[in-house]
Design a protein around this nucleic acid. Structure first.
Lengths: 275, 275
DNA sequence: GAGTGGTCTAGACCACTGT
DNA sequence: CAGTGGTCTAGACCACTCC
């Protein structure tokens, strides 16, 4: 009976990856540092380059390493996060009734960025389409009901990549009183969606955001210029009005390495406490 | 001059992966279906098994495929999402002043699950520790300030995996009036953290959640029994009281394939509209 | 041009799955 | 047991980076 008869040693590629990760976590390798070449690592571990490649691939998949293509792999420098605030909903709402000049400052409709909006190419697409099953379920309407679908893409020509993307769906019947809402030339609308809805007498009183994350497909990754190991955040926003109607659903996507979504939940005060 | 002199064909492994993904997206391969064996795919593409392996690895990394180890790869069946609601904050707060019997129904403090809490092993760890730089910055206190650190781990013995994990930090000075708060034996505390804080005269009026996502490391993935290609959601919750003090920060982690975080933002009504 | 990582072949061994 | 995917070797060719 050997000491640990069933204990199978971890695969070589995993041991190599773990070793490198520990060096990163201990600060032995700082962000921006170059790793040894595959050749050197192969010699250190007395193995061929294949397990070393696999180890590096593993770490890239986990977002710890960047680089390659003729250059040595680099310990990844985490990019700064852009925080996207849900408080903006209230800010936007407050401004709907304010002066026109004030409203303009808020900018476009669904998304804000640290980068000036002027530097971004906003491509929008407006169309009245029949509700898909997914959209219909979320909006609580019949499948095929006409809905206004608005798509925004914020493209950064300087970086050559997409910065934000969202689709919004609004039942056509709720807003057809104001034909201007269907005209993409009115984009960006001062004061955003809340002001647009205000023109047809709709007041949003509750917004529900549902957040999850997935790994991007190959096509998605290159569309966003994502490094490997970076998930996408998905946020479905449901806007509910004073009549408890599901007025709008908006699906937005953000690269998780440079985005933090922030949600503020105000709580009502207890009646009997006055400090 | 050739038609497209610079056009380099995509690597074979990418073409194979794209082909399989398109079959999945078209419904040609349904969730749960088995893929052809590596051998068969190698014959179909007239290549060795290595590029086929790489293609499969790519799709696993993107969360589209599961399986292996003696079995054919399987098109992944997306698990049902557990929705975690932020509205619970208000519910919990409302119950603090309600009858004791009602309070008990809410269960434990930070996390709720679809699974009955009784089926889960909750391991908690209470300790007063000096604030790390990260925690100190978030709580707006000096580094090294004594804070109560509470860690919860909800472990599912049936599934053999972790279901939720969170750390909470509260400055010791804010709550030392009630020594019971430092005793892990009082866990689960009826009514949750809000009730605990109520006993020392603290009323939370605002909660800020910051959400992002990353890919898990190898160790993290096996701790949570995660399939490959599944990101982790990170949620930092900051609780602010009536005196604008940063009372608690709580960092929670959830597997993104089975979790949706839901945040409800109520908006204040416009004064001049009465419908 | 030398060196690097990325891709691919061909073939070996192992652990795991099914029957 | 046969078949499968996972790991690894050894060596080839290519595209890219940097000097």
């Amino acid at each position: 009976m050997e000491p640990q008869p069933t204990a199978v040693p971890a695969p070589l590629q995993v041991r190599i990856a773990d070793d490198i990760r520990m060096k990163i976590e201990r600060g032995d390798l700082a962000p921006g540092d170059s790793l040894p070449t595959l050749h050197e690592l192969g010699q250190q571990w007395s193995c061929s380059q294949n397990p070393v490649r696999s180890a590096i691939a593993l770490l890239k998949q986990q977002g710890l390493i960047t680089g390659g293509r003729g250059k040595a792999p680099i310990v990844r420098v985490p990019p700064r996060y852009v925080v996207r605030y849900s408080e903006r909903h209230q800010t936007e709402k407050d401004l709907v009734l304010a002066a026109e000049a004030e409203r303009g400052k808020i900018g476009t409709s669904e998304t804000e960025l640290q980068v000036s909006v002027n530097e971004l190419e906003v491509r929008s697409d407006y169309a009245v389409v029949p509700a898909s099953d997914d959209v219909a379920e979320a909006l609580r309407v019949e499948i095929g009901t006409p809905v206004l679908r608005r798509i925004w893409e914020h493209y950064n020509p300087a970086e050559g990549r997409r910065e934000a993307w969202s689709v919004s769906h609004i039942p056509k019947s709720l807003i057809e009183a104001n034909p201007a809402l269907f005209d993409p030339n009115n984009e960006p609308w001062p004061g955003g969606t809340q002001h647009q809805l205000y023109t047809v007498g709709i007041e949003i009183i509750q917004i529900v955001d549902e957040v999850t994350a997935t790994m991007p497909t190959t096509a998605t990754a290159q569309l966003w210029d994502l490094e490997s190991g970076v998930p996408m955040l998905h946020c479905r926003r449901i806007s509910i009005d004073t009549l408890d109607r599901f007025v709008e659903i908006s699906d937005a996507e953000y690269p998780a390495d440079r985005t933090k979504l922030s949600f503020t939940t105000p709580l009502t005060r207890w009646e009997n406490t006055e400090n």
